[in-house]
Design a protein around this nucleic acid. Structure first.
Lengths: 144, 144
DNA sequence: CTATTAAATAGGAATAATTCCTAATTAGGA
DNA sequence: TCCTAATTAGGAATTATTCCTATTTAATAG
């Protein structure tokens, strides 16, 4: 069952299994597309009305420290969270807030290979994330 | 002279040349390493004590829209500004706030080539930025 | 099952970053 | 020199996030 997997994730990170943390993980699981803390808050509170906002922020920060979520950096000034841990890159829409995951093992491998050969002075590379900026071409909206 | 170049930049973007905008551009020029709005504010106000904070934010936003600066978002949740427009990538330190520019034309070209061949469904690529995450190896601090 | 205790949470106040508002000023063109 | 749309000052308002402390709770050992 899903809940058991979730509480496993928590235990593996030496975190106590609390309803609040479960709720945040559920939210992250349901809300695709890199929710803001605000969206997560909304979702959590819908199901658990008396979870404190501060708790949600703290929980997200804890998860981030333990590597259970990642933060997505954007040009906009709200932080967004990403629960998908498989290596991937992001497509950023120039015009909207949309951010999509972009999985491409060949690309990832190419980048890794590149930095195996190409040493950067005084810097040790640990992770590589490509920001692919552009526009989504939605066939339906061509006549806008 | 430098000031003339700056006011050219402004005119080319259809922006009026005002002392406030000159001051912000000067600040961006002097403050290397991706200053926060706060650092820019500090610098501007040192030289022009009665420039309003709102004006600085608005000016930065205007510059961003016109493409005179770029925004860099970090996991620490403050926006930082980047006046260097030559194509480049960024080195992010995992442990500190440090962000460095990383120029590598070969890398840039490799990525561009890759996306010329590799079409992404419903998405038109306009820009590619690599986030290189890792740690700076400072010889002096090895004995920490 | 119960007691213990360190960790986690509620609730809201405090802070920090950024945006918004309006009257006054100003740059650039006529 | 004048006109007008654009810009700015100054500060209030908003928004996102962090911080604080008394209370509660999950995990562990007995």
């Amino acid at each position: 069952m899903k809940k058991e997997k979730i509480s496993m994730d928590l235990k593996n990170s030496n975190l106590k299994v609390t309803p609040q943390r479960m709720a945040v993980l559920e939210a992250l699981d349901s809300l695709k597309n890199h929710p803001t803390a605000d969206k997560i808050k909304e979702y959590v509170i819908k199901n658990h009305p008396n979870v404190a906002v501060g708790t949600i922020y703290k929980t997200l920060e804890t998860f981030f420290e333990k590597g259970l979520v990642k933060k997505v950096k954007t040009e906009k000034d709200v932080m967004r969270y990403d629960a998908i841990l498989k290596k991937h890159h992001h497509l950023y829409c120039e015009d909207t807030e949309q951010i999509e995951d972009f999985f491409d093992d060949k690309l990832t491998k190419m980048l890794e290979e590149y930095f195996k050969k190409r040493e950067i002075p005084n810097f040790q590379v640990k992770d590589l994330k490509l920001q692919i900026i552009g526009t989504f071409i939605n066939k339906k909206s061509l006549n806008k």
